[in-house]
Simulated assay, not measured.
Amino acid sequence: MSTLPTRVLVTGFEPFDGEHANPSWEAARRVAQHPPPGTNVTAVQISCVFGAAIDELRDAIEAQSPELVLCIGQAGGRPDLTVERVAINVDDARIPDNAGRQPVDEPVVQAGPAAYFSSLPVKACVAAARKAGVPASVSQTAGTFVCNHLFYGLAHLIATQHPGIRGGFVHVPYVPAQVAHRAVPSMAADDIATGLRAILVAARDTVTDIRETGGATH
């Protein structure tokens, strides 16, 4: 008897802050078009808007009933795929979101926990991406903009409404077209997608995370 494919939801953001593309969505689309074996992947674009982002994620989870959720966001300036370890319960926006909202020191969820750890095996995910030839590392901060907002929202949904789901967040670099006129790290969308496919397989198949160095001094 064959095993049914793992139902996977991947999300990427719409462009923001004056950009014409968002590598998180470009990569998410590619992963859904060519999913890793043993997975059935649906990609959903999320608005870069506080509040609405979590609402859209909730709707997608209810519509797709995934077993695994991987949210993806742009981290301009980072040189590699960064698998996020922790989401914190604070919105503190350096710039306005796409609806002009700019919360300062507000909770993502009123009376929610201070933080949630990813329910994915973050170090195994990093190792898998590297084995696939894509630079990757553990990140200790998802920021305080809409990416962290969505990551925290995902973790809270899992903790309070969908305990059978596992999920986490990965930040990805700019794509080359975004940095053609500035000296900032970038990565091709196809390479990002290759790393994400490896991360999904590791997240699906790894029960206990590996123990290896992945910390940071600051």
Rank of each mutant, 00 (worst) to 15 (best):
D97S: 07
G38T: 03
V109I: 14
R7E: 08
R130K: 14
A28G: 05
A216K: 13
P66F: 07
Y174N: 13
P163F: 11
A99S: 14
H149Y: 02
R85L: 03
V8S: 02
M1D: 09
E212C: 13
T208Q: 14
V175G: 00
A28R: 01
R30H: 06
A60L: 03
E56M: 06
P15G: 05
L9F: 03
S24A: 10
A202K: 09
G164H: 09
R204C: 10
A188Q: 15
D17H: 09
V201Y: 02
V86K: 09
A203E: 11
A99D: 10
T208V: 15
P36Q: 02
Q110M: 09
A63Q: 04
K131N: 15
G215I: 13
N40L: 12
A21F: 11
A93M: 03
P37A: 14
D97R: 14
I72C: 09
A28M: 06
A75S: 11
V146K: 10
C147E: 04
D55Y: 03
T11C: 14
V31I: 14
E67P: 02
P121I: 00
I72Y: 02
A128E: 15
G100N: 08
Q178M: 15
P121Y: 01
F145W: 08
R166G: 03
E26L: 10
P113L: 13
R94V: 04
F50S: 12
V90H: 02
G76C: 04
K131S: 12
G168M: 13
A155S: 15
T11D: 09
A202H: 11
P79T: 01
A115G: 11
A155F: 01
A203R: 10
T194S: 11
I95A: 05
G100R: 14
D205K: 13
N89E: 05
P5H: 06
P37R: 08
P107K: 12
V179G: 01
G214L: 12
T39S: 09
A53G: 06
P121K: 07
T217L: 15
S65K: 09
Q45K: 07
A129L: 14
A129D: 12
K123T: 11
L154E: 01
T141D: 14
T11L: 05
R30C: 01
C147W: 00
R204G: 01
I46D: 08
D55N: 07
D190C: 03
A203N: 11
Q161H: 12
V175I: 15
